[in-house]
């Protein structure tokens, strides 16, 4: 498992670079706060990103991971991006943002030891993960849309039942 070892050796840099890349996608106002180097100021946003970063990398590297674990780790990250002010493409393009980082950091090493095929496989895994993220993104958006409908329905739930009964009563008479 030479390729896995190379990936593992680069985890720290790639994850850090990717987290940076994600932070860079936030509109100006947020970047400063998320990124602060001196004090490791975190906030839920930064934390969800880090949670996602580590797992995303492991999955790409080809670690033995169960899909539910991956999904769980990406869950809040994707959900967060789904309710932020982004276009869908912008929300999810961050997954692909790992590619240039991998190409810069990992690809040369892999080529040196003739593991190009393994590297390409890793990139394919990233593509699959992007598709997984797409599913999750859609699901999240659907949840929001559903929440809207449900909320309107719930606000008037009893009223609707009452109206229904009136109607039924009217028919019975």
């Amino acid at each position: 498992m030479l390729s896995l070892e190379i990936f593992r050796a680069h985890k720290k840099e790639v994850v850090a670079a990717w987290v940076e890349a994600v932070f860079a996608t936030y509109p100006f106002e947020t970047t400063g706060f998320l990124r602060t180097k001196q004090d490791p100021f975190g906030n839920p946003v930064a934390h969800m990103t880090r949670e996602a970063a580590s797992t995303l990398f492991d999955a790409v590297a080809g670690e033995d991971m169960h899909p539910p674990t991956v999904k769980n780790a990406l869950d809040r990250f994707i959900k967060l991006r789904a309710v932020q002010k982004f276009l869908p493409s912008q929300s999810l393009a961050v997954i692909h943002a790992m590619k240039p980082i991998l190409r810069e950091q990992v690809l040369p090493k892999m080529q040196d030891v003739g593991q190009l095929a393994a590297y390409l496989e890793a990139e394919s895994r990233l593509d699959s993960l992007a598709l997984l993220a797409f599913d999750m993104y859609c699901e999240a958006r659907e949840t929001v849309a559903e929440a809207r409908i449900k909320e309107i329905r719930n606000q008037h739930a009893q009223l609707a039942r009452w109206a229904q009964r009136l109607e039924d009563g009217g028919k019975a008479e």
Binding site: N43, P44, R50, S54, T55
Partner: peptide, 17 residues
């Protein structure tokens, strides 16, 4: 209080706010 990220939280198996 300070909102911060704990890198290795045992419950989350990863970072947690």
């Amino acid at each position: 209080t300070l909102a911060e990220v704990r890198e290795n939280d045992p419950v989350n198996n990863g970072p947690r706010s």
